[in-house]
């Protein structure tokens, strides 16, 4: 565990908490893509199956359980409790265009052709693109509430910090995982445009609004 990895995990945790609090406090999930949240739930469930097979550390197990639980709670709030506030019309990204390529890619490019390994690889690929329905929703409505922007910034920073963690681990431990690195780079690149808008607008107190 190095400082970049810890900062990445805390950023990830912060993102999930911000999202849950936003929905809970405003009693609304307006501006949030339910499709991205479904994809994240699939990511956690397929990656953290090793909770049942491999013990790594108490920290590792607790974080995995928290991510799965928070993801389930988010889906419950969006699709059950505050269903009426869910922005169906704008959340129109076709997730099969992400799911199917990720399944195929995981079957072709993986470290080991075993069920657990292919599910892990699938979750890594899917996570890298899972934010696309959310970014699509923001681009369709042309704006995002500040709290949604903070959520996206924390969530995007998490994988960017993991990239630093992987550079550190490569230098310090000669450890690397090309699948994770490749997907992590793709994931971070997808946020770049948003990062730019966040820094130039949201941090200056303006609303995130896309040019018409």
């Amino acid at each position: 565990m190095n400082i970049f990895r810890l900062a990445g995990d805390l950023s990830h945790l912060l993102a999930i908490i911000i999202l849950l609090l936003k929905i809970w406090k405003t009693r609304s999930c307006a501006g949030i893509s339910g499709k991205s949240q479904v994809l994240f739930a699939i990511v956690y469930l397929t990656r953290y199956l090793d909770l049942f097979t491999t013990y790594i550390s108490l920290y590792n197990s607790i974080m995995k359980i928290v991510f799965i639980a928070a993801s389930g709670a988010t889906l419950y709030l969006m699709y059950v409790k505050f269903k009426a506030t869910y922005d169906h019309n704008h959340d129109s990204f076709r997730i099969e265009f992400l799911l199917i390529p990720c399944v195929i890619l995981a079957l072709i490019i993986n470290h080991d052709f075993t069920v657990m390994e292919i599910l892990w690889t699938f979750s890594i690929y899917l996570e890298s693109v899972a934010i696309l329905p959310q970014l699509f929703l923001v681009s369709k409505t042309g704006e995002a509430e500040s709290i949604t922007s903070h959520y996206l910034f924390a969530l995007g920073s998490y994988r960017a910090l993991y990239l630093l963690n992987w550079i550190y681990r490569y230098m310090a431990e000669s450890h690397y995982d090309l699948i994770a690195i490749f997907a992590g780079v793709v994931q971070t690149i997808l946020y770049c445009d948003f990062f730019y808008l966040y820094i130039t607008k949201v941090l200056k107190g303006k609303k995130l609004q896309l040019p018409a």
């Binding site: 990830h12 991510f67 963690n165 090309l178």
Partner: peptide, 10 residues
């Protein structure tokens, strides 16, 4: 180097 270092990550 060691491949597959990411299983202890989240």
């Amino acid at each position: 180097g060691n491949e597959k270092a990411s299983k202890d990550e989240l």
